[in-house]
């Protein structure tokens, strides 16, 4: 019981400001936005080229980068979440620019839902408790990927790249192809890198700082 109380106290402190603490967006946040977008470009491009099955990849870990970026860096991570696929899709050839632009709301959702959930439920990005794991897997990986798959397939149908009769098959392929690597990769990165990020100046307790 005592250990539970300690854990609860430490998880809530991740998002709560210290007494007198003032946090303002700074140039480091712009830099981390650019650097994180760079990581996303590499991860997204490699993922798309690794096991391509048409417009979706059987292994696209980019969604994990979208979610964890938004968890750690709030709005900056959310911007990165929709910015890097514009470039990585172009470089990998998995989607042309107009299609990538239409993906933006889906990509934004794939990033921002996890950020909202972790802040709302005061979950620790280092995944210390079972509650943190549940929030991460359900609201950081499964729900965002479900929304992303539905939106993305809608875009493909709207662009005439997939017939509406094939929409359900595409949604399922998209959802599974993104969710599994997101859970595996995202869990490892959150578990091992979050302690470093939480100590850095770039970490955002709020949305912009």
């Amino acid at each position: 019981m005592a250990s539970m109380a300690t854990t609860t106290s430490s998880t809530s402190s991740v998002w709560e400001k210290e007494a007198g603490e003032i946090r303002k967006p700074g140039i480091i946040h712009v830099v981390i936005l650019a650097l994180f977008t760079g990581i996303g470009i590499v991860v997204g491009t490699f993922g798309s080229l690794a096991v391509p099955i048409g417009f979706v990849s059987a292994f696209w870990p980019g969604q994990a980068v979208q979610s964890i970026g938004s968890i750690w860096f709030g709005g900056w991570g959310a911007i990165s979440a929709f910015l890097f696929p514009l470039i990585s899709n172009s470089l990998s050839g998995s989607a042309p620019l107009p299609v990538s632009i239409a993906y933006i709301p889906g990509n934004l959702a794939q990033g921002i839902i996890a950020a909202i959930a972790f802040r709302a439920f005061k979950s620790d990005p280092s995944l210390r408790t079972s509650k943190d794991w549940v929030v991460w897997i359900l609201l950081g990986a499964i729900l965002p990927n479900a929304i992303g798959a539905i939106w993305g397939t809608g875009v493909l149908v709207a662009f005439g790249l997939v017939t509406s009769a094939a929409a359900v098959t595409t949604v399922l392929g998209w959802f599974i192809g993104n969710s599994i690597p997101s859970i595996i990769l995202g869990s490892i990165v959150l578990k091992f890198v979050s302690p470093l990020v939480l100590r850095s100046k770039a970490f955002c307790k709020g949305w912009w700082a």
Partner: peptide, 11 residues
């Protein structure tokens, strides 16, 4: 700046 630096960061 963000667009340019992002692409350089990828490299």
């Amino acid at each position: 700046y963000v667009v340019g630096f992002s692409i350089r960061a990828a490299g």
